[in-house]
Design a protein around this nucleic acid. Sequence first.
DNA 1: CGCGATTTGTGCGTCTGTTCACAAGCGCCT
DNA 2: AGGCGCTTGTGAACAGACGCACAAATCGCG
Lengths: 257, 257
Amino acid sequence: MSQQHRHPGAPGRAGAVPALPDLPEATVARLPEYLRALHNLAESGHETVSSEGLAAAVGVNSAKLRKDLSHLGSYGTRGVGYDVALLVDQIEFVLGLTQRRAVALVGVGNLGHALAGYAGFASRGFRIAALLDADASRVGEEINGMVVRHVDELPAVVAEESIAIGVIATPVPAAQAVADQLVAVGVTSILNFAPCVLSVPEGVDVRKVDLAIELQILSFHEHRKASLTALPATGGSALTALPGGLAATDPQEAIGT
Amino acid sequence: MSQQHRHPGAPGRAGAVPALPDLPEATVARLPEYLRALHNLAESGHETVSSEGLAAAVGVNSAKLRKDLSHLGSYGTRGVGYDVALLVDQIEFVLGLTQRRAVALVGVGNLGHALAGYAGFASRGFRIAALLDADASRVGEEINGMVVRHVDELPAVVAEESIAIGVIATPVPAAQAVADQLVAVGVTSILNFAPCVLSVPEGVDVRKVDLAIELQILSFHEHRKASLTALPATGGSALTALPGGLAATDPQEAIGT
DNA sequence: CGCGATTTGTGCGTCTGTTCACAAGCGCCT
DNA sequence: AGGCGCTTGTGAACAGACGCACAAATCGCG
């Protein structure tokens, strides 16, 4: 942090703090990855990185990386690269991580339990400020040094802590109701682990993580690879319907019925 | 293609099974969502759905849905809609779910434990066929009716079961080694929960789920919304650098240092 | 002090994905 | 049998993202 460059967090008087350009969504999704790689680099002693080097560490095209970074202002030095520490600060600022964010986790079942103990949240700028559950038999349980409270205490919890983000790890039937409650108390960002769509008023952001969907996507590619290697004779890429050969190679037993 | 569609799972004799058109990646990612919604509809007694109806249930544009479905063949009836049961079969076939897939889960820590007990996998076409861990103190533990085995037994496990997909839920330092082992025994699809990039040979698919990244993306939008509402006076949308006003409104304390 | 090596930042063509809008097709009702 | 309303499937315009390739800028060295 030896920059002449004002720390982005420091309320520098002069302008030129490139506050919040509206970034392409695809770029936003990659910034956390860059941030992680940069932290690793910083720990291993690197003071600067070239776009090529950082891109390799993240596994993306270097031009894409440069364009991404250029969106948040020009913080590289031609002929040298990017100052690691500076870039870390910059990205953390843009992502709103200069201030540790408090999240409320609702649903302390199988998955919620694991999330409550997930060290990655704490180390990446978040603080689980509350554990909530609707099941009275779970209320009072202590997980990782935190006591589970009843979900009805949500208003009180939000009053105590400044909760910006809610995480839903409840079973599907409860998810929408919890989302409504979160919205009611002013939460405007929700991370939903329940495999269902949530309807929320405009202005509230919802992101969804569905573990099974990821597997199903992999399954598709698996299926695809299998069918392609099984049919090398049937010239080229199967762009159109394959003449039933597939049915023969694949012992399909339906699970649906 | 109004073939009195034969059940895709049933090895119908005649050809014309629209086997594996190479779908756009974006479409593939949505198929599981359609599938879930269709299952719900089927349970609630619907026999057919219009694209409009299904699109609403999933939360997408109906034109997009129709185009997605059209990629896997024409299975709707104009003026009527889609046959729910037929579409379910069709999507399950394309996703390779007509046959229940066996997955191996490596890393039975906090998160792995939860994944091992996650009912969503079983109900959506997957079977956790093995739990593995490198930590000898965890080997032998029984989770959800399955015994944890040592990761070195991977070759044996794959021999017993037909493992197509591996799930990595280990700490970061172990992830790459585990990936290498999985690849070595012939696994060609990996779902990685460790927050790091895996390098795998060509032909192996990796999907990554990073819980913290999702939160960081939400944090960005949170930050953005906060800054926008805080500056209603500063005309319109802040497309360019804001003149330092932001720094004043936001009590930023860095977490980095 | 100037030059060459290096690396950023970006203009532009390409491609993928999304949306609109409408013709074609289907079933039902008369 | 014929017409009418509804819904699919898709052509075409549009938008967003990607990657190439190069000019501009900086550093270090002679």
